[in-house]
């Protein structure tokens, strides 16, 4: 028995699903942005064990599919140690945060390393403290450098959220797919593209505006 649904029903339900998608997006950014910075400093550290630990973790995370990581984080602890499974949202947030922190860390590192040594030295000979040099001289230049790659990565994150489905996190694609089973409808699945497009369009505008705001100087 297939149920009858209206366009309005589908829209409402997809909005709910997209809210779940945005939760992954928001939580991931919240944790991955600062964690990435910590990993970036770790992988630039002069303390070799820390440096190699950070670089190895980044290599593993960036070298394997996010989908596989989700499965490992969700099922791994149970299979290996007989631990209880993580809650699905917890496993998703954890995996996404670590995964994106690794990508962000490489972007941060590139941005920090792109700042010429002369900028630090100019600050030093002018009697500035190390922290003043970082916050007053270097930081804005780093931000300017990393905005384009960060915007790419963040837009990728919007779409990567759909992978969470693999461990039964119910996000927009899952909501849309359920109409195939319950109502024999495929169009809700296509309809999800509108949500992604609208949101990514918004982000593109936002990053464009930031880039424009920082275009008054060349670094």
């Amino acid at each position: 028995m297939l149920v009858q649904v209206t366009f309005w029903d589908v829209t409402l339900s997809l909005l709910k699903g997209f809210w779940e998608t945005l939760e992954i997006f928001g939580v991931t950014l919240l944790f991955a942005l600062p964690l990435g910075l910590i990993i970036a400093f770790g992988s630039m550290s002069r303390f070799y064990p820390l440096k190699w630990l950070c670089r190895t973790v980044v290599w593993i995370i960036r070298g394997t599919p996010l989908m596989l990581q989700l499965i490992v984080f969700y099922y791994g602890p149970g299979l290996l140690f007989d631990w209880e499974l993580l809650e699905v949202p917890t496993a998703v947030y954890l995996t996404f945060s670590i995964n994106y922190a690794c990508y962000f860390s490489e972007i941060y590192r590139g941005g920090i390393e792109a700042i010429p040594k002369g900028q630090y030295e100019a600050g030093e000979v002018l009697g500035m403290k190390k922290s003043q040099i970082f916050f007053r001289v270097v930081l804005l230049q780093v931000i300017k450098h990393i905005i384009p790659p960060m915007s790419n990565e963040i837009i990728t994150l919007v779409k990567d959220t759909s992978l969470a489905r693999i461990i039964t996190y119910y996000e927009i694609i899952y909501f849309a797919e359920s109409y195939i089973r319950t109502a024999g409808l495929i169009w809700p699945l296509f309809y999800t593209a509108v949500f992604y497009l609208a949101f990514c369009g918004l982000l593109t505008l936002l990053f464009g505006a930031i880039e424009k705001k920082l275009s008054y100087f060349k670094a």
Binding site: G118, A122, V137, Q141
Partner: peptide, 24 residues
């Protein structure tokens, strides 16, 4: 020290380049 490559701070205008360190 004045460097070969100037090393001005690109995000600050000329006046701010001069005043940043003294103000700090």
């Amino acid at each position: 020290l004045v460097f070969q490559q100037f090393n001005l701070f690109p995000q600050y205008n000329v006046k701010e380049n001069l005043c940043l360190a003294p103000k700090l």
